[in-house]
Amino acid sequence: MTGFRRLAIPEVIEITPPKHGDHRGFFSEVFKRSALEAEGIHIDWVQDNQSLSAERGTVRGLHFQAPPFAQAKLVRVLRGAIYDVAVDIRKGSPSYGRAVTCEISAERWNQLLIPAGFAHGFMTLTPDTEVFYKVDAPYSRESEGAILWNDPALGIEWPDPGAAPVLSDKDRVAPLLSEFNSPFG
């Protein structure tokens, strides 16, 4: 049976599908619409994305898509491990500006559901980490946005990768939360 664990911000949910193994290997239904719907989660996924981060300590995020292209994400790790972060950027939310975190790994076989209205990012904990995620809206360059991954106001306790984090130019210069006007009202 699929496991569901709501994080400190209950809209963000850790999901662990069952994994059945024997001498041949294993089998798992990693996505099962009916299991999500039984938990009251009704999302029409439209696209799958996959990324490879070669170095440990690679940071991707904190990213979001503004309406009308806002995206919910269902994130899983195919190889390696990540420290995954979701930040509530919904104006008027009691948890606005708060972050929740969860380690996701191929070994743990868990996933993280991040609803629209959250900025999302992760740091790789192992080299050659592959991340796979579903989204419920297409990507739109005009609707993309970001918040600085290490903004002290967010209070995220990122792991120490043992070297300077690997960042894109875009992520390095993303605005602070205090400089940000959320499109989620």
Rank of each mutant, 00 (worst) to 15 (best):
A70E: 15
V75G: 09
D151V: 06
G57V: 05
F4S: 11
F31S: 02
H23V: 15
F69D: 14
I41E: 03
F118H: 04
P175D: 09
H20V: 15
A146V: 01
A86V: 12
P115F: 07
R90T: 11
I89R: 08
Q65A: 05
F64V: 04
G80P: 10
H63L: 03
H23N: 13
Y133V: 11
I89D: 02
F132L: 12
R172G: 12
L125K: 10
I104S: 09
E179P: 01
S105Y: 08
A106P: 01
D136I: 04
S51A: 13
Q65D: 06
R141V: 15
E179K: 13
I13H: 07
R56H: 08
G92F: 10
R141H: 15
W158S: 03
A35D: 10
I156V: 15
G3E: 15
A99F: 05
L112D: 05
V131A: 07
T126V: 11
E11C: 08
S51L: 01
V59P: 03
A164C: 00
K32Q: 13
T2N: 11
L167W: 01
R79A: 10
G92Q: 00
G185L: 00
E103F: 02
V131E: 03
F26Q: 00
P10M: 14
K170C: 02
Q65R: 08
A54R: 14
K170Y: 12
A146G: 14
V173E: 14
S34M: 05
W158G: 00
E29G: 03
P183T: 09
E103G: 00
A106R: 01
G40M: 11
V59F: 06
Q71S: 10
Q71Y: 09
S51M: 08
E142L: 10
K73A: 06
H63T: 06
W109P: 04
A81I: 12
W109V: 10
S178G: 12
P10A: 13
S143N: 14
K19D: 09
E37P: 01
A174Q: 07
V46R: 06
I82D: 09
G185E: 00
V87M: 04
G25Y: 00
I15E: 11
D171L: 12
V77Y: 01
S28L: 09
F180V: 04
Q111N: 07
S182V: 03
S182H: 01
A174W: 00
R98K: 14
D128W: 10
L112A: 09
G121S: 10
V173M: 07
S95I: 11
A146T: 02
E130F: 08
A86Q: 11
I104A: 05
W45Y: 07
A99H: 05
I82M: 08
W45R: 03
P127T: 08
P165C: 10
M123S: 00
Y133W: 14
E130S: 13
R76E: 02
V77T: 04
A119M: 04
G121Y: 00
V59G: 10
I104R: 03
A146L: 05
L7Q: 12
E144Y: 11
D136P: 01
